[in-house]
Design a protein around this nucleic acid. Structure first.
Lengths: 198, 198
DNA sequence: CTGTTGACTTACCATTTGGTAAGGCGACTA
DNA sequence: TAGTCGCCTTACCAAATGGTAAGTCAACAG
């Protein structure tokens, strides 16, 4: 059934996000569902394929989301800015997925040898194109605009993923204040860097 | 012997960086060394304790390194800027350690329940103090300066960790150009944000 | 009524996991 | 010479790993 597959994918997202590909077990994925580990294997064939479906799901959602935002703004600079703000909001709203994508980045070296699939590429291309559409950045050489895109991507993902660490380190209250101000700080970072020109 | 311990820690750094805490096995750590898995257990007691020593090693080195840089500059803003540039260089020179710290961030939620140790705290405190020493940032409320520190930390770590992914995605040549310009772009990001004030 | 198909199960399997137990062995001490 | 201490080994272990084999059972088709 389609719904069963869906439930497996959702559960797998959590497990892979929390333990990484190598640390996750398909038994753990099935554990909280009213199905056995073999039902999972019946639907997906292998752990690797299940992981692939999870990644594809995330990549598709993100690409679609950013696409919608991109169409809401015509002015390149505003589009760039709002897309990254939206990316931050989306990442914050889906910390599991954010963590999983970060793990994929880390596991990639090892996994690339066998899997060879690049789920992040369409997402990165979308963002790089966005940067290239800003007049002042178009002429930048040596991938200066791409570097900035990557800096923002890192700043956003790293912060979102740090929630458990930061809230324990600084206490829930201080962390909430930090998180409340982060979006504003992100906006300032983007505008001040863009103002400086390429 | 001290040297044997050292070799175990070095090997463990690689294995933990590549597979994460859960995905790594102590057998894999001993595999490339002329000792058995039990020799490892004899020295460190458990996988958890070995991991702890590895993290402590990294944290100590980083803190010491940043301390040296901090003392080379008296003017707060220059000190802030140079410290982050140095942090970038250090991260780039030690990609294994960078990846491992990132994994620690991701694994932390799970691991915190049992281990409760915060290896990253001294490092973060050093950087936060650095930001607080900048006059214009001292008055910032809601942790605006800390947010900026975290953004830089994320931008740096994320980029360093992405080397395998990026060089495969864009090709070795394009990636090298990107990497060659990254430090300069980082500097621009820092100065433009600081110029904007808090 | 029969055959087939798809979802899901129980029963296994070899391999790997982190860890324990016990002992060999060289060096140093009484 | 006997004792003991630290480093490291072989011999195990129960539990968990990803995956295979062989079914059960309901729905549906002829």
């Amino acid at each position: 059934m389609t719904e069963t597959r869906e439930r497996f994918i959702q559960a797998a997202t959590t497990v892979f996000a929390e333990r990484g590909f190598y640390g996750a077990s398909i038994a753990a994925v099935a554990e909280d569902l009213p199905f056995t580990k073999q039902a999972l294997l019946h639907h997906f064939g292998s752990k690797e394929k299940l992981y692939g479906e999870v990644l594809k799901r995330i990549s598709d959602r993100l690409t679609a989301e950013l696409d919608v935002i991109g169409k809401r703004h015509t002015e390149p600079r505003a589009r760039f800015e709002e897309t990254f703000i939206e990316f931050y909001r989306s990442s914050l709203a889906n910390p599991r997925e954010t963590a999983l994508l970060m793990r994929e980045l880390l596991d990639n070296k090892r996994r690339a040898e066998t899997s060879k699939s690049w789920y992040l590429k369409p997402l990165l291309n979308t963002l790089a194109d966005l940067a290239a559409s800003i007049p002042s950045a178009r002429l930048a050489r040596g991938g200066a605009a791409l570097a900035f895109v990557y800096q923002l991507l890192g700043a956003i993902s790293y912060f979102v993923v740090s929630e458990p660490t930061l809230s324990t380190m600084y206490g829930d209250q201080d962390f909430e204040a930090l998180q409340a101000g982060f979006e504003k700080q992100l906006r300032i970072l983007i505008t001040s860097r863009l103002d400086a020109g390429f």
